[in-house]
């Protein structure tokens, strides 16, 4: 799933300076699961903002509404009436970078601000602990790396690792960060597949250097987009 981390409170407060009627929109999918931007997190942030602005003698009317998914027009539609009636002077989104952009696009006349920093595609290790596993590089190498991604996990994105900084199975950047290539070597050894990394992996083209679009076969862009 997509994980995100809430921005520092001071940064959020600074962004909303000068806006007095704000709707904070949560997202009920990925960012809810990683405890960053669901209904409860919207409530906590709104309470914080209300208290802080009151202390500053600059009260804010901040409301919250969490929809199922911000990256889906179908769910965004339910905000239309709320936003029309509310006359908000700003929107805030606790969804990932994808969701907030769809929200901002739907209400282009209202300034929209992010309350979270999107950090990547991660697995849920235990409640509250999420580990990045994919950089969505558009060119998956997991087939020859034993199912462990060096683009994500190796701090140098090596394709012919491990480098000389491997430290008892950890990465040179931190003892808490496992060395991707050590793990790859370990797993492929166990599978008797070390030949897979004995040959040189040649330079690759980076496919993520320009915006990517996916158009499935058999589908085409509609002539006119319906909101």
């Amino acid at each position: 799933m997509i994980v995100a981390q809430r921005k520092p409170f001071a940064e959020i407060k600074e962004m909303l300076q000068g806006y007095n009627k704000v709707l904070n929109v949560g997202c009920g999918t990925c960012v809810s699961v990683c405890l960053t931007g669901g209904e409860k997190e919207v409530a906590v942030l709104n309470t914080e903002l209300e208290m802080a602005r009151r202390l500053d003698d600059d009260p804010i009317d901040i409301q919250g509404h969490t929809i199922e998914r911000q990256c889906d027009r179908e769910y965004l539609a339910e905000l239309d009436s709320i936003i029309e009636e509310g006359k908000f002077d700003a929107l805030m989104s606790m969804a990932c970078g994808v969701g907030i952009q769809f929200l901002a696009e739907r209400y282009p006349l209202i300034p929209t601000f992010p309350a979270v920093d999107t950090s990547g595609l991660a697995v849920n290790q235990t409640v509250g602990w999420y580990e990045e596993r994919c950089r969505s590089c558009s060119q998956c190498v997991l087939g020859f790396t034993g199912g462990i991604c060096p683009i994500t996990m190796c701090a140098k994105r090596l394709l012919n690792g491990p480098c000389g900084g491997t430290n008892k199975g950890s990465c040179e950047i931190s003892n808490d960060q496992p060395c991707a290539w050590f793990r790859i070597w370990e797993r492929l050894s166990g599978q008797g597949r070390l030949d897979s990394i004995k040959k040189i992996n040649t330079t690759r083209g980076w496919k993520d250097q320009a915006p990517r679009n996916l158009m499935q076969p058999g589908y085409k862009k509609p002539e006119k987009m319906v909101k």
């Binding site: 806006y19 007095n20 009627k21 009151r54 600059d58 009260p59």
Partner: peptide
Amino acid sequence: PLKAKPRKVAAPA
């Protein structure tokens, strides 16, 4: 400190 700052309606934008 919030006690001294009763809630009031936010200033219109």
